Simulated assay, not measured.
Amino acid sequence: MSADFRTAERFLQAEGRLLERRLFDAIFGEGSPEAVAGVLRGYRNADGGFGHGLEPDKRCPASLPIDVEVAFQSLAAVNHPDRELLGPACDFLAGVARGGAVPLAFPVIEGYPRAAHWTEWTYEPGVNPTAGLTGLLYQLGFEHPFRDAATRYLWETIEAGTLPDETHGLNEVLNFLAYVPDRDRAAKAAPAILERITASPLFQAMPKPGEYGLTPLHVAAAADSPWRELFDDAQLDAHLEQLASLQQEDGGWPITWDPPSQASRLEWRGIVTLQATRTLRSYGKM
């Protein structure tokens, strides 16, 4: 089964927020990476961080590390290391870090609509989102003292065997290992991380339609991922087939959790539709 590229594009044109539309144009068309950066500036705060629901599961305007991560992901998707955005954002991260690590969020989110899973656990500094942020800074080729301190924290945590069991956090560590310059060290560490991910009840080695979870396509979202070889072709093909089958009549993809509002749901559908389109095109399935 193949998904339809043009109906996905029309869904984003009709329902996606401006950021995903600009990303789609820059990734698949003739859009400018600077146009993506321009949208991100609307989510930036005076402290250099990003907020205003850039990650749509909480509608808080304050700067949060998770929103900074989404900004970095957007810049990396179009290979645009905008120093005017990255520098102040890293300054913000350095200011809220403890021992090189940052949390996903802060208690300020409690004053605004948010998804039920955004609770106290998101206030603790850890590998999620520190590893993802650090990997993205390496991917973007952007040097900063925050990146250096976070790298030290991550290597110490990885090599001490004190990583959490939380599956999203472990996947963030793989994102760090995909781009950190010490490739031999990363290759040595990656198999144990993957083993812990695949042992989690949240991981779907084969598709479980309608259930929330992580799949091989979260770990190897593109065909050129360094982690693609960690999965066999049958696994990848089954998940690609399942992903293609989930395209809705309106051209978009559904989500499997409850966001805080209908606006948030549509925003998330735009995000996952762009993600699905990128993955399926990369693997030649769209």
Rank of each mutant, 00 (worst) to 15 (best):
R185F: 05
Q235R: 07
L140N: 02
E229Q: 13
L202G: 10
H52Q: 12
G161P: 03
W155F: 08
L163D: 12
A115G: 13
P209M: 03
L18S: 07
H168G: 15
Y179E: 07
H117D: 14
H168L: 14
D57E: 11
N175V: 12
T256E: 10
D232S: 04
S264T: 11
Y112P: 09
L194A: 03
L75G: 02
V78N: 04
A221K: 11
F203P: 09
G111M: 15
V78K: 03
R59A: 15
P65C: 13
T157Y: 09
L64D: 08
L133E: 03
E195H: 02
F106W: 14
A187Y: 00
F24A: 09
I271W: 10
D224E: 04
Y153A: 15
Y179M: 05
A94T: 01
L246P: 09
G251T: 14
T215H: 00
L243P: 03
E30F: 01
G111N: 13
H239R: 01
R185N: 02
E195F: 02
Q235I: 08
R185Y: 06
R6M: 14
L18V: 13
F72Q: 02
A223I: 04
I197F: 08
M286E: 15
W118S: 14
G48N: 05
D148T: 01
A26D: 06
L230S: 14
E9V: 15
T167H: 05
Q204N: 02
R269V: 14
